[in-house]
Amino acid sequence: MIELHTFGPIDLGELNGAGGAVARADLELYGIDHFRPSYTALVFFNDAAVTARNASARRRSYAGSFSIFGHAECLGDEGHCAVSAETRRFDTRPSHPLTRAFKRVVVTAALARLRSARTLTVTLVVACDPATDDYEADGPLFDCRGVQLTTFG
């Protein structure tokens, strides 16, 4: 199974207007559902031509990658894998193992190559082992609540 997810565009004018030089840039992905098979995602910047067939770390638009070590399937009774949004005052136990995850991808070099670009569109090409893509979870393989670009001076 291979999926494409596209985010953006966002305006890079302010970033490049400040001289464009950043010490580090991170692509941060919030709230990733990892009740999924494990997978790897390749990250591309401003590449409308990237597809499941031609995605590769050798493309000039390649910005980085990340992997998710997933939980794949439930091995418990009903409700075992349900993450409750409710928090009780005296429940200080560790959070549920399936609480959504955070990832960062360092994209400093890739962002530096976009010095002349006015906008940024991010494309993720996500794939899991073909032997595991019959998972039963609802929704796509890659499911996150937000993506943001953060730069550090």
């Binding site: 098979p37 494990s38 998710i68 070590f69 997933g70 794949a72 399937e73 960062r104 991808v105």
Partner: peptide, 17 residues
């Protein structure tokens, strides 16, 4: 993330928590 990628690369039982 390096750790995750090795789990994915090994696959099979190593590929699931």
């Amino acid at each position: 993330d390096f750790h995750d990628s090795v789990h994915v690369w090994v696959g099979g039982d190593m590929g699931t928590v």
